[in-house]
Design a protein around this nucleic acid. Structure first.
Lengths: 232, 232
DNA sequence: CAGCATCATTGACATGGGTCAACGCTCTGG
DNA sequence: CCAGAGCGTTGACCCATGTCAATGATGCTG
């Protein structure tokens, strides 16, 4: 059995609040599960039966209108928490953007454990508050920013979050791999795939970014990107 | 001194988790404060020094771009919690939409109290999870819905939330007073004031709603409204 | 290596909603 | 009762972005 003690996200996930013996108990109720690219772990509207910690990989949270228009409402990385504890239904689908690993719990077992471990709940609260701030910040982008600003903002944020996730000391990396297709970028930004593509082309032709291949982005002029994003 | 025991939101706010003696202690660190219409209680980007429970009235949470475009990212009602506990900065401004009353705490005092009262933190966690679901749901509206759908969705949600807040047993009321001006509706829906006005006129001319005066809305055909909102 | 599926780019065109401007209603204070 | 301010409505016009369609890359499979 894989032990929590050796878990790569041990010190960043909400589990970091737990002592060795507590971790032992948590270890018994959770199991490590691989999730393949494109696989959906939870569906919008389902009963909330599972929650999980992301160990490795990137997943999207999404909702759709009745007629099939999709909006990505969050992107989660290793050490992030997914699912809806203390609630009866899951409000959005969770789908792997690349092959991933999660540490899965039944909601009932997790809820029980959390209720008896205030430190864990506190970590979860902090994480949820941060996610709420992030979601609300994204609402400004969706409600008020132009297509050009959206794409630039997205690229800057992606650079930042991938830098945070790696160990590069917090500086945004200027070269990175997108974990999203163009369609997924469009679904995240509230645009169409064509508009995303045109904005990327525009930024490339302006010499602000480079796109060596369709998954790679190089930010050539960070200052110009900030201006494009409407910061400042 | 006004006692928590007599507070109108006593049974709905996060304080409902507390026993009489605990409430006694909380009573000492909080104070009831009136907030006038238009008054801003916290500013985006400020150090997070205050948190509060809403006792009476309606307030908006908002963010802006550098060049002044505004987006309302949340609307809070009696018993809701405002401010950013366990964090150093407030990510959005909080402004009263009508004269209101809040129960104000310094963040440090509240944080200390919360850390030693897991039941309170649990309530706060539940509330925050619900707010996060709500914010993400709104992202679908901002990213993917048409102007007509946005206005209809807003009116239905407002009817629902005002019904929840009053004691009408949970049924949406078909007649209600808007706590928002047209500009504020536009800021919430990611539209302009003209578009909001035109969509309201359209719904009125279609016989789906009535607008007896500029603050009052009457939903005449609830089914048609659901269709307008894109809830197939 | 050929054939096919998937993903991305580009162009031409259409349109929803933004912009600008005029006007109307309502309330307040003198 | 009038003047002015604030808020809302309506109309004309325009442009950013969506829509539709063709083409180009990339990579997988047999």
């Amino acid at each position: 059995m894989t032990s929590c003690q050796q878990c790569v996200v041990r010190n960043r996930a909400i589990c970091s609040s737990l002592s060795a013996p507590e971790l032992e108990v948590l270890n018994k109720i959770g199991r490590r599960v691989p999730v393949h690219r494109g696989q959906t772990l939870m569906w919008e509207g389902d009963d909330s039966l599972l929650v999980a910690n992301v160990i490795d990989g990137v997943l999207k949270l999404s909702t759709s209108t009745a007629d099939g228009r999709e909006q990505i409402v969050g992107v989660v990385y290793p050490s992030d928490f997914i699912g809806r504890p203390f609630g009866s239904t899951t409000q959005h689908s969770v789908t792997a953007l690349c092959d991933a690993q999660v540490c899965l719990f039944t909601r009932s077992a997790f809820d029980d454990f959390a209720r008896t471990h205030p430190e864990l709940e506190h970590k979860l609260l902090q994480r949820t508050l941060t996610e709420l701030d992030r979601a609300r910040h994204w609402m400004l982008l969706l409600g008020r920013k132009s297509a050009g600003e959206r794409v630039a903002t997205f690229l800057l944020e992606m650079a930042q979050r991938l830098a945070d996730a790696s160990c590069s000391g917090g500086d945004a990396v200027e070269r990175f791999e997108l974990p999203l297709t163009r369609q997924q970028m469009a679904d995240l930004l509230g645009l169409t795939i064509e508009t995303v593509s045109r904005q990327l082309t525009r930024l490339r032709q302006a010499g602000i970014i480079d796109l060596p291949d369709r998954r790679t982005v190089v930010i050539l002029d960070h200052e110009a990107m900030e201006a494009e994003a409407g910061n400042g």
